[in-house]
C-alpha cells in the first residue's frame, strides 16, 4: 500500500512520506531502503554514527541529491519527478527549485551569503524567489530577526556575527519562505559549546509553534525534550525508531546501545575536560545522563 502512488495524496496525514529510499555515490550504496513518515507538526530527530547517511537522507528530501530508488512525497507531492500514468519523468531544475520553496534547510556550516547583511540574507528569497515587495520582505525580515533574538543586528555582515548568531540568522532566512517543513543538519555541531544553547532555544521555540521539523543532531537533551520521534540510522538503514524515551533510554538494538554508550562517554569526557579547564568540581553523573 505505500507503493501505491494514488493513495499518497491529500488525505494522508504524513507531511513527509519516504518509502524505500535508495541512494548510491559511485557504486557506494549510502541509503539502503529508508522508510520514514513525518506527520504534520511533528519533530523527528535523526541519530546515527558518522557516515550512516543522515545528511544524505536530508538532502534527498529536498532534492539536493537525486535518489536512485524509492519515492519521497512532501505534502502529497512527489519530489523530483512527475508521475504520468506510472511512468516517472524527471522534473527540470526549475521545477525542482519550485518544490524546494516550501522546505527550509539549515546547514552545519550556516552557509549565509557573506556579501549580504543579516537582513539582506533573510530578504533574498522572499524578494527574488517569491516576488514579494522589498518593503514587505523587510518588515517580515525584522520580525524574524526579533524572533531569533537579533533585532539589533540587521545590518551586520555574517563575518561580524558569532557562529550562534549566524545560525540563528540562517534559521530566520529559511523561515522567511514560510516553509511547511524545516530540515536541520547538525545545526549546532560547528558551534562553540557556549553558543549551542541559544540556537537550540530558537529551535525549541520553533517546535512549539507547531513547525514540522527533521533534525539531525547529537544533542541528546534536545532529542529527549523536543522530539516526538527519534530515528536511529546506521549503515544506510533505519535500525530503530520510536518515542525518545524508548529509543534513548531503552534501546532495543545492540547497535543503538553501542552508539548511545559512545555518545555518553564522549559527552562525559567533554564535561570533565571543560570542568578541568574551568577548575570546578565535576557534578555527579546523575540520572539525567547527558543533560544540556
Amino acid at each position: 500500500m505505500p507503493d501505491d502512488t494514488t493513495t499518497a495524496k491529500a488525505a494522508d496525514p504524513a507531511l513527509v512520506h519516504a518509502v524505500n529510499v535508495h541512494k548510491s555515490f559511485h557504486g557506494n550504496e549510502v541509503l539502503k531502503g529508508i522508510d520514514l513518515d513525518v506527520r504534520r507538526g511533528e519533530v523527528v530527530v535523526l541519530l546515527g554514527p558518522s557516515g550512516s547517511g543522515k545528511t544524505t537522507f536530508l538532502r534527498c528530501i529536498n532534492q539536493l541529491e537525486s535518489i536512485d530508488g524509492g519515492r519521497i512525497w512532501v505534502d502529497g507531492e512527489l519530489m523530483g519527478y512527475a508521475d504520468k500514468g506510472g511512468t516517472l519523468h524527471r522534473l527540470t531544475d526549475r521545477q525542482i527549485a519550485a518544490q524546494r520553496r516550501d522546505i527550509g534547510m539549515c546547514f552545519q556550516r550556516f552557509n549565509l551569503f557573506p556579501h549580504k547583511t543579516a537582513l539582506e540574507n533573510i530578504m533574498e528569497a522572499p524578494v527574488h524567489v517569491k516576488g514579494q515587495s522589498r518593503e514587505q520582505a523587510r518588515v517580515r525580515g525584522m520580525e524574524l530577526l526579533e524572533r531569533v533574538g537579533l533585532k539589533d543586528r540587521p545590518s551586520a555582515y555574517p563575518a561580524q556575527l558569532s557562529g550562534g548568531q549566524q545560525q540563528r540568522v540562517a534559521i530566520a532566512r529559511a523561515l522567511a519562505m514560510d516553509p511547511k517543513l524545516m530540515l536541520f543538519d547538525e545545526p549546532t555541531s560547528a558551534l562553540d559549546p557556549e553558543l549551542v544553547g541559544e540556537v537550540l532555544d530558537v529551535m525549541r521555540g520553533l517546535a512549539r509553534t507547531g513547525m514540522t521539523m527533521i533534525v539531525v543532531t547529537h544533542e541528546m537533551g534536545f532529542a529527549r525534550d523536543v522530539a516526538d520521534e527519534v530515528v536511529f540510522m546506521d549503515g544506510g538503514v533505519v535500525v530503530e525508531q520510536g518515542a525518545p524515551r524508548a529509543v534513548i533510554d531503552n534501546p532495543q538494538h545492540q547497535r543503538t546501545r553501542n552508539f548511545l554508550r559512545r555518545m555518553r562517554a564522549e559527552q562525559e569526557e567533554f564535561v570533565h575536560a571543560a570542568a578541568a579547564l574551568a577548575d570546578i568540581p565535576v557534578p555527579d553523573p546523575g540520572a539525567g545522563g547527558a543533560a544540556r
Binding site: 539536493l64 531544475d93 527549485a97 519550485a98 534547510m105 549565509l112 551569503f113 556579501h115 533574498e124
Partner: peptide, 24 residues
C-alpha cells in the same frame, strides 16, 4: 555551500549564479 543554500531556498540555478555565486 553557497550554491546549496540558495537552491535550498528554492532559487533556480540561473538566478543562483547571478545573485549569489557571481557577486562573490
Amino acid at each position: 555551500g553557497q550554491n546549496e543554500a540558495a537552491q535550498a531556498l528554492g532559487m533556480a540555478p540561473g538566478k543562483t549564479m547571478r545573485r549569489i555565486v557571481l557577486p562573490q
